[in-house]
């Protein structure tokens, strides 16, 4: 039982990170109807932004303070928001009205570009690096369980960000405009919504969440490298499809469930080597039996 609960805690901490990244995939899919393959790399850039910001922040604030950690997180989110908007502006906007496949391939190209230029010695280099401890870490032991402060921070930050996102999307003017664009782009444009700025904003929001995911991931797993976004990004995308792509609560739910399943599977001796394959197997099963995802709406194609 203790083992079961322990894995549940570990799984939820991993799932929270998947959820943060999955939200970016799902929001972009909502407004543009394409898979932003480069999103996993924005997650990586977020982690690296934190890596370079931490020493700078520590100059003004005592090392390992909660305030310092929060500042690093917010600054990294801002940097990635700008990067996300830049990616959209340079690579995807010229292709706005092209076939989806063209945009998908461009996204793969952007992803490869980020990965390989970051592996170059002049930028980050290919070697893994140790992520600095942003905040003091402790671990609590109770009922035979171990709960690390990082896990609590991950879960708390994720919940906070999800609340903030939900507020932006549901209560603010720009969030309403986002939902309008996702619902019907042409009608929204006719009602005076500036499509371009809404799409930019969506990318900014998604990339900021990915950056937060990147920093939380780096805090928990300590090592970062330029290719860390590939597998994690794919799995977060699977989480988004799992929950129903285009659906925000679905992405959060899908992330949580995927994290938990993956952690449990990793704990079963024979299955642990196949961990990376499990997420894909789940994806295929979901698409076979419920193509619209857990919370997605089934749609029939109109001629």
């Amino acid at each position: 039982m203790a083992e079961f609960l322990q894995q549940l805690i570990n799984g939820l901490a991993l799932g929270a990170i998947y959820a943060l990244i999955a939200l970016g995939y799902t929001m972009v899919y909502g407004v543009l109807r394409f898979i932003n393959f480069a999103h996993g790399d924005v997650f990586m850039l977020g982690a690296f932004a934190g890596y370079y910001l931490a020493p700078l922040v520590n100059r003004c604030l005592p090392a390992q303070s909660y305030l310092g950690g929060a500042i690093v997180l917010v600054l990294a989110m801002l940097i990635c928001a700008v990067l996300g908007m830049l990616i959209e502006f340079l690579a995807y906007r010229p292709l706005r009205n092209r076939p989806k496949l063209t945009v998908l391939i461009t996204a793969i190209g952007v992803s490869l570009f980020i990965e390989y230029s970051c592996q170059h010695e002049a930028i980050f280099g290919a070697a893994p690096r140790k992520f600095p401890d942003l905040i003091p870490t402790t671990a609590w032991h109770f009922w035979g369980l171990v709960l690390s402060s990082n896990q609590v921070i991950v879960l708390a930050t994720t919940l906070l960000l999800l609340g903030g996102l939900s507020y932006i999307v549901k209560r603010t003017r720009i969030g309403t405009a986002m939902r309008a664009v996702a619902f019907n782009e042409q009608a929204a444009a006719l009602m005076g919504v500036n499509i371009n700025s809404i799409i930019s904003f969506t990318f900014a929001l998604g990339s900021a969440l990915a950056a937060a995911g990147g920093i939380l991931f780096a805090m928990n797993y300590a090592s970062i490298e330029p290719l860390m976004g590939v597998q994690t990004g794919l799995k977060a995308f699977i989480a988004a499809v799992f929950g129903g792509i285009g659906n925000l609560p679905g992405a959060a739910l899908g992330g949580g469930i995927l994290g938990v399943i993956e952690t449990y599977a990793g704990g079963i001796p024979g299955l642990s080597n196949y961990r990376d394959g499990i997420a894909f197997a789940i994806l295929i099963l979901v698409l076979l039996f419920r193509p619209a995802g857990l919370l997605g709406k089934q749609q029939t194609e109109k001629v």
Partner: peptide
């Protein structure tokens, strides 16, 4: 890096 830029450029200029 050249390869990936080639993909992006190709998609924008000659899809």
């Amino acid at each position: 890096i050249i390869y990936s830029l080639l993909i992006i450029g190709l998609m924008i200029a000659r899809p």
